[in-house]
Design a protein around this nucleic acid. Sequence first.
DNA 1: CTGAAAGCGCTTACAG
DNA 2: CTGAAAGCGCTTACAG
Lengths: 331, 331
Amino acid sequence: MKTVRDVATKAGVSVGTVSKVLSNNPTVKPALRDRVLTAVADLGYKPNMAARALRTNRLNILGLVVPDISNPFFAQLAKNIEAEAAQQAHMVMLANSDDDPDVEARQIEGLLAQMPKGLIVVGSVDQSKVSIQTEVPIVSVDRRYGDYKLISADHEAGSALVAEHLFQLGHRRIAYISGPQSTEVGRLRRKGFCDRLQQLALADATMKFQIVEGHFDYASGEDIGRRLLSERAELRPTAIAAASDQQAIGALRVARDLGIDVPTDLSIVGFDDITLANLVVPRLTSVSQNTVEIARMAVRTLLSEKPMPTEDQFVETILCARGSSGAVAIK
Amino acid sequence: MKTVRDVATKAGVSVGTVSKVLSNNPTVKPALRDRVLTAVADLGYKPNMAARALRTNRLNILGLVVPDISNPFFAQLAKNIEAEAAQQAHMVMLANSDDDPDVEARQIEGLLAQMPKGLIVVGSVDQSKVSIQTEVPIVSVDRRYGDYKLISADHEAGSALVAEHLFQLGHRRIAYISGPQSTEVGRLRRKGFCDRLQQLALADATMKFQIVEGHFDYASGEDIGRRLLSERAELRPTAIAAASDQQAIGALRVARDLGIDVPTDLSIVGFDDITLANLVVPRLTSVSQNTVEIARMAVRTLLSEKPMPTEDQFVETILCARGSSGAVAIK
DNA sequence: CTGAAAGCGCTTACAG
DNA sequence: CTGAAAGCGCTTACAG
């Protein structure tokens, strides 16, 4: 392995000068600079990151902790974070917390020991407790970790988009399948939907609206969907909005089982825009989180010279209208 | 940050002794050892990885390069690799090659600069060229990278299991939708299926077998499935085996469109056991890769003291028989 | 504008 | 069995 010494010898300068050239220190004369750069290229010199880290107390590394990388949403996030970090010449260390706060704490310690420039944490549980103490900058993404500032999709505004979408399609009997109200995401999505719908429907006496709380999974969507759709056609909802795509897809199946045509007799809308949303028949209308933008914000926040933000940051969502939602049937 | 010096002072020993205790060097007397350990605990001392790396030329890090972490299979693999590495007190640096050999080369350089103990590479393209030179041990996983030894599922044996499964269910008119024969995986899966079927059917004059080459995606499965199933019931295949779950699911859809009942009138089998395989109706019979074992092998191979293996290693696959395959209808 | 030197925190022969 | 010392490759005041 080549070192700064080798480069210095070859270029006929001191190691200090080589170091200055490498760090783009402008006090080096162009002539010398070129000589050094040539030597670097000739020798195929690669700086030793460990030595650099030992001096500077920081490696060109970002740590990322997610509950489970095999969850497609977190995988998508990880991919975009890695891409953004790579653009800024940083590598990403990945750790899974397995949804366990203890594992999470250990993983964070392990990451911190590598002296990263910053840490991105998707909280393992709602607002996990934090025991670590560090000056390494940390941001929470998607789910808050401790008291660290959060960067996430604007769940509330996204759900409001769904409410508008359904209202504008003429639906007046609407059901909302919420997520667990013990989770921040579950609460925010529900609030966004309800608030907006209430605003819109204030003057409309024909409006019928019901909420059923569930889990975020397929089974929950099937259960609740079956209950909602077992009523007579004149009474049951003409539209179901769900807090997750899984729930929505569960409801979609039940509708098919019951012979209720989507979207003619029933509109269904999900949230998250998972890959599957685009593969079911009919394709599912859903709200897409802009993971590219979330990732970019997180990386830039950590790598910028500016002080850490003092407020949470929310990224706009996009409503992807597809085949599963349509205008209410005219009677 | 505490250093070995602090620990040494507190324990009343030299830094060398502290270092020896930390590296479990058995030449330290138990009494001293305990004093050092106590001091470590009291001070909350954490070794500086960069300093250690500078001396030993190796960090407790494993590098992982995948084409695309948002591909569920690679995400699963990454998760298991991270878990196994964590067990051995190593962190994982993740990089995406984006299926581009140039990006791949750059990512590998970046990873190597961090002085990892080893590199796990899922090749970006079939047998990508290698320009890098390093003594860091490298293994290919799933798709070969350069000439490095491969650890992967036994695609051939897995496909043979499918052939047996269908034959034993009594199928004698069988179609195989292959993957691109330009890819190693495509070739191996096809070979495994054909060879085994030929063995089984040698004595059976009623056997009718056809192969159609396609891509690994849904569209390909739909296209080819439609062609295969457009014949009269007495002539068309009673079973379709596909080289991927996507193809199989595409065929499943076509069968539903054509009013052909699965599995009564047609059996369909996929490969890979993706999450979706368990979500379609009926659930898809498929071959599951043991990513836990693949991950374990890869990590252990890199971290073991033993010299790198000189042969490729294949991990057994499992046939998951589900609703989409059944005994051939008795006429 | 350039160079010589100190030192980051650790490990490892080596001497005792 | 333990300690003193050298040195890994780099960066950064400091002197010139």
